[in-house]
Simulated assay, not measured.
Amino acid sequence: MNAFTIISKSGFIGYVLLMLSIVALAIVIEKIIVLRSSKIAPQEEIRTMVMLLSSEKIGDVIEFCKRNKFLISEIIIEAFRNIGEISRTNFLNAFEVIARKRIAELERGMTLLATIATVAPLLGLLGTVLGMVKIFGVLDTGTAAMANPQQLSAGIAEALLTTVFGLIVAVPSYVAYNLLQRKLDKLVFDIEQAGVIIANNLKGFKQ
C-alpha cells in the first residue's frame, strides 16, 4: 500500500496530516540550511577578531566583520554601534540584547515543529474515532452492513490508517525536533561564548 492509498483512505484527517507533514519537512530543511556552524560562529573567524583586538583598534574588527558575513559578526557590529562608550560591560550588555533577538530568529519554526510532533498522533486518534463511528453507523443498520461491505471496510480502513499516518508524521517530526534543538543549543552556547571572548579581549578600554 503506497502513501497515496493511505491518504485517500484516511479521509479528511489524512489530508490534514499530509499538510502538516509538508510543513514539518519545510521547517526541517530550512533549519538544516540555517543552523550551520560555518554560518553562525566559525571559530577561526573569532580567533582572527581576537588578534585584531590586540591592536586596540575597534575599527579593524568592524571592518573584518563587514567583510565576513556571519551571524556572530553581524551581532558584533550591531553591538559596537549601540554601546556608546566602549567598555567590556557595555559591550556584553549590548551583545546580550542583540544576540537574544537573533537567537529568537534562529528558533523560529521550532515551536511549530514540536506542535506538529505532538498533534499528529492526536489527529490520527481522532481519525480512528471517526472511522469507528462510521463503522458503528453501518452496523446500526443491521443486515444492511452485510449488504454494504464496502462501506464497512472503508470505515475500518479509515479507523486504522489515520492512526498509522499520524504516527508516520509524528515520529520523524519528533526526532528531527530533538536533533535540531540540540544543534541550536550548541550554537547558542557558541554565540554566547564568542561574546564573552570578544569582551574579555577589549584591552585598553574601561571595564
Rank of each mutant, 00 (worst) to 15 (best):
D140F: 13
L179E: 13
L125R: 05
F136Q: 10
M146S: 05
K134S: 09
I103R: 13
V175D: 11
V171S: 09
A99R: 09
K101D: 09
L160G: 01
A145G: 14
G142H: 10
G137H: 13
A120C: 04
G166Y: 08
M132K: 10
A145W: 01
I135N: 11
I116R: 01
Y174E: 15
P149L: 05
R100C: 09
L152M: 11
G109Q: 09
A145T: 08
Q151L: 15
A159F: 02
T143G: 00
A170N: 04
F136K: 15
L152E: 15
M146T: 08
T162P: 04
G109L: 09
V171Y: 04
R108V: 06
P149W: 13
A159L: 03
N148G: 00
A154N: 07
A144E: 11
A157Y: 10
G155R: 11
E158F: 03
A170C: 12
A94T: 10
E105Q: 15
S153E: 06
A120M: 06
S153A: 15
I98K: 05
A120S: 06
R108Y: 04
A99V: 13
G109S: 10
G142N: 03
Q150M: 04
V164K: 10
T141G: 12
S173W: 08
E105R: 15
I156P: 11
T118I: 04
A157Q: 07
L167V: 14
M146N: 05
I98Y: 07
A104P: 12
I168E: 06
I168C: 07
